[in-house]
Design a protein around this nucleic acid. Structure first.
Lengths: 131, 131
DNA sequence: TTTAGTGCAAAAGTTTTGCAAATCG
DNA sequence: CGATTTGCAAAACTTTTGCACTAAA
């Protein structure tokens, strides 16, 4: 049986993640945490992020840009990904409550949850491209 | 201007992808194509898969298992991913036509398209786990 | 013959891991 | 002290790329 021990690094990582509304990659978290812990290693950041995901305190977002992103908001919500600048933005849109059941009716398996990503251009990129 | 030239390897890759209903990774395509072209290289498989994606003849699926999967069915459809065995299965479920518009109403950007993945246990894994 | 595609190997980028030292309980 | 966590570096993986050579048009 493994007991969880307190770690200042882990707390800092979680606090950092909770304080930002973007959805940083491990490397971005690493850069941010380094201001408080200049000696922290990237491996520690990865280990703690994965641990937080296992604990259900953080959500991992994967959508095809080659890097995993992390989100301290574990509630079911959807994201918009900008193809111009790569920004990942929360969508204030209520999740479709019946979609899992619809999917359930189409498979012999057990549907547990789902993810939705929208892709396009964010407002900033639209403005820049209109020049 | 770059002109597209015929390539037996590319045709074979596309044919292979069209013939199967699973959603293979580049490595799985490579293994399969090697039966016909024993000397083909993994780099060529990647180059052609990416080219086919650019041409809109193939779709790339990324959902968090660390590898990209490829699908010759480019129509909008949703997938079920089994957490037990990793299988990726097409869901015979009609895509939500109004979801992009709903998302559009929540962002100042331009929504172009979306992806949906369902996660859970496939029938095979449920059976095995019930023992 | 001109240009695109291939094979091979090396490189790049992200994430994981082994291990000795440090920290928590 | 005993168990977990860290830092560092090396390794593991997937994907991309440079280059000389081959194949298509």
């Amino acid at each position: 049986m493994k007991t969880l021990k307190y770690s200042r690094q882990r707390e800092s990582i979680k606090a950092s993640l909770m304080s930002r509304k973007d959805h940083p990659t491990a490397d971005a978290v690493y850069a941010s945490i380094r201001e408080e812990f200049p000696n922290i290693s990237l491996g520690t950041v990865y280990r703690n992020l994965n641990l937080l995901v296992e604990l259900g305190e953080v959500q991992k977002l994967t959508f095809g840009d080659g890097k995993d992103h992390f989100d301290a908001d574990t509630s079911l919500h959807y994201h918009f990904v900008c193809r111009g600048c790569g920004a990942v933005i929360d969508l204030p849109m209520e999740p479709l409550s019946d979609i899992d059941q619809k999917a359930q009716a189409c498979t012999a398996g057990q549907v547990e949850d789902h993810t939705v990503f929208f892709f396009g251009r964010c407002a900033d990129c639209l403005k820049k491209e209109s020049h």
